[in-house]
Amino acid sequence: MTGHGDWHVPDDDLRAYARGTLAPPALWSADAHLAACARCRAGLAEAAGPVDVDAGWLRLDAELDAPRAGWCEGLLVRLGVPDHVARLLTATPVLRRSWLGAVAAVLAMSVAAVLTTGAPDGSPTLFLALAPLLPLAGVALSYGPAMDPTYEIAVVAPLHGFRLLMIRTVAVLAVGIGLNGLATLALPAYGLRALAWLLPALALTGAGLALTPRLGPVAAPAAVGGGWIALLLAAEAAREPGGGPLAPFTAAGQGVCAGVAVAAAGVLFLVRDRFDRSPSAH
């Protein structure tokens, strides 16, 4: 063993001590030794870094006034949304410029593809296939432990989890459908056929939410999105050459989508209390 006088806290332990991650009993050895050893204390100061100094500066130039609402929150309040609901919405991860920009880019590309390649079957299939997935993804990304950094705090708050989910879902759906609608305006040649994404979008979003308590907040929308793509591929394979739009975009297909949307809403209502607890163990 090492003698009494010439032992020092190992560098690794010192760094762990500075981070606050050194565990007992090594922590106690370090505690006891640091009190008596200037050399190790100097090493610790080096390992700790300039965080404390920064904290002092932060305090100096802090803003003293209560914060003003951001542009999004201010707009919502002007539109008549109560201020506490606006606060809940601005904490929704997907209602941010980066997400909205990504959705707009995807829509613009699909519209451009339809415009440049044309649509021999009289239906903007690529756009119709893609547009329903965007609200599904948006709603999926607005709730759940993986996406919402404050999920753990939100889930134990007295505000019912389902109510929070619905507030966010309505907002995300409104934004998603609004963007899809704008993209539809860029395809005037297809008339109402270019709106055939709307009912599938409601059906997919509803089904994704209704399956969330059973499959979890990641697997449920992924399964629904995958199912949608599989369905379209199957419809494409079954379609006779030059046989008109894919099955989901026909009148019958739209009727099925509406039915699925209504059924999903019913299931969602029945399982509403399941959104009240954390879906994952950790």
């Binding site: 209560a66 914060p67 506490h84 606060r87 809940l88 904490a91 991860p93 919402d148 950094p149 404050t150 999920y151 753990e152 705090i153 939100a154 134990v156 708050a157 007295p158 505000l159 929070l164």
Partner: peptide, 26 residues
């Protein structure tokens, strides 16, 4: 409740974050 790794919306101010939690607390 203070969770082991409390998450934040990093763009929120301290006030806005606590205000958000206060809304969650009705």
């Amino acid at each position: 409740y203070l969770p082991q790794t409390p998450g934040f919306h990093p763009d929120f101010t301290a006030f806005a974050f606590v205000d958000y939690v206060a809304v969650l607390k009705e």
